[in-house]
């Protein structure tokens, strides 16, 4: 498409090194802006407190960035790293469901906040009540990962991931179904 002859009068500049630095900077900013919230939400779903989610997401970002040249799927790697950091930091005897509530959407408009707060809390509580494998399968699917990527992230098998997703969704449907109103009469 580009004909070299067209640019014969335009010798190349020697700014490639600076360009690389700028690409690195922009890449970092893009990654931080786009992925930090996603990682935090993922960690919340598998039981992290807001503080743990925030800290683990940032640590995972730094650790993954240092290995960026060797990573093929950065989004998946970030989640694996974040989960490992989180699980290492959580005492095994603390049940996930005893963690604090996830943050309410405090930065939405007041009207949207009132409307969304209860629903978010209810859905997140239901997800966090799931076994870890099911919560992970549901969270990662929502995050846009394919089954094969979830297998890579969780170290499981395709069949186990599909089963976990199916059972997780079935449990969520049951727990989140609208409760029939009781007839007091």
């Amino acid at each position: 498409m580009l004909d070299e002859d067209l640019f014969v009068a335009c010798p190349p500049t020697e700014d490639s090194e600076i360009d690389d630095e700028m690409v690195e900077q922009v890449s970092w900013e893009y990654l931080a802006e786009k992925e930090l919230p996603n990682i935090a939400v993922y960690l919340l779903k598998i039981g992290a407190t807001p503080e743990e989610a925030r800290d683990c997401a940032r640590i995972a970002l730094h650790q993954s960035w240092e290995k960026r040249d060797t990573i093929d799927n950065m989004r998946a790697y970030l989640r694996v790293t974040a989960k490992n950091i989180y699980l290492r930091s959580v005492p095994k005897q603390v049940p996930l469901e005893e963690c604090d509530d996830p943050p309410a959407p405090e930065h939405l408009s007041p009207a949207a906040r009132v409307e969304a707060r209860d629903e978010v809390a209810r859905v997140m509580a239901a997800i966090r009540e799931l076994p870890l494998s099911q919560a992970e399968a549901v969270a990662l699917t929502l995050d846009g990962f394919t089954t094969s990527e979830i297998v890579a992230i969780t170290g499981s098998t395709p069949a186990a991931v599909r089963t976990a997703l199916h059972r997780g969704r079935a449990a969520l449907k049951k727990r989140l179904a609208p409760q029939p109103e009781k007839d007091d009469a």
Partner: peptide
């Protein structure tokens, strides 16, 4: 329901970060 929840949470966490 899950998508709506995700959107609300991501909005909050984008603002948080």
């Amino acid at each position: 329901l899950l998508t709506r929840t995700d959107r609300a949470l991501l909005h909050a966490w984008h603002a948080e970060f």
